[in-house]
Every structure is written in C-alpha cells, then in structure tokens.
C-alpha cells in the first residue's frame, strides 16, 4: 500500500553541498526528518552537479520517512552561468550588463524542458528569454522564428 504523504518541502540547494545549517536543518528537523540522511542522499545524487543550485521537492510520509525529486536548475541560475556574470544588472530594465546568444537560450530551454509546462522547445525558449531580459541580460543574434 502506498504510504500516506503528510506534506512537502521545497528547497533549492547547491549540488553536493547540502548540510544541516539553516534553512535545511531547521526545515527538516521541525518535521521530524533525519537531516543527516537527507544530506547524504542529496549529496550523493548531485555530486555530478557540484555547486549548481538545484530545486528539490521532498515528500514527507506520516511515518517520518521521506523521498525526494531533484529538478533542473532554475533558468536564472543557468543564464548567469551562460553569461559568465557574477551578478545580473544593477538596473535590469535600463542597463544591459551582459548577454546570452539564442543558441545558449536554446540549450537552457532544452535542459529546462522536463520541468516546464511548454509543448515545444520554442515556447520554452521564449520563457527563458523573458527571464534573461528581467535579469538585464540582452539576448543577441536572431531568434529562430525571425526568418
């Protein structure tokens, strides 16, 4: 019989670097989950994405056991990596401090496809490009739909 789920926890943690400091420790600990077991599992499953911020959804069962799903990194994290900027723009709507190409937007959209509610990669690209502009990143080159 499937176990009864008593709740969920949503976190974003750097790959391979989960540890019991806040907010992970207090969030899991207050639900009676074994923090150290979560950290060990998360770090083992994400060691190939060391340091990259990864969303994780933990399902908590009524017997205090848990399992979790690791999702793809947020588009904003991938965009900052792609633009090799340490920080986004100080004034996103006015000052463009960095750029990404449409090819990079496509690569990010392809990574994000499993988690996005987008039927085609082009729709995912539009979402990613929207996030890039919000962050003050210019999308350079010609969009694939601009023939």
């Amino acid at each position: 019989m499937a176990k009864e789920i008593s709740g969920y926890l949503k976190l974003q943690i750097r790959g391979g670097q989960a540890n019991p400091s806040p907010p992970v420790g207090p969030a899991l600990g207050s639900k009676g989950l074994n923090i150290m077991e979560f950290c060990k599992q998360f770090n083992a499953r994400t060691q190939d994405k060391m340091g990259q911020v990864l969303p994780v959804v933990i399902s908590i069962y009524s017997d205090k056991s848990f399992d979790f799903v690791i999702k793809t990194p947020p588009a904003s994290v991938l965009l900052l990596e792609a633009s090799k900027l340490k920080k986004g723009s100080a004034e996103p709507n006015r000052l463009k401090v960095g750029s990404v190409t449409w090819d990079q937007v496509r690569s990010i959209a392809e990574i994000k496809m499993p988690d996005l509610n987008a039927p085609k990669v082009e729709s995912a690209m539009k979402m990613v490009a929207g996030t890039a502009r919000s962050m003050g990143l210019k999308v350079t080159g010609r969009a694939p739909w601009d023939k």
Partner: peptide, 23 residues
C-alpha cells in the same frame, strides 16, 4: 528564482521555498 541565482553567487548555499517567497 532570480534572487536565488544571485544570492548563490555571494555565499548562500541553500534556500527554502515558502508560500510567499523564500528563506
């Protein structure tokens, strides 16, 4: 999502998503 990406570049390593934002 944007703030988390930015904060992760300045030493923050984990984030709890809450109903109205994050911690």
């Amino acid at each position: 999502d944007i703030l988390i990406a930015e904060l992760s570049n300045i030493g923050f390593d984990s984030f709890l998503i809450t109903e109205n934002g994050f911690e």
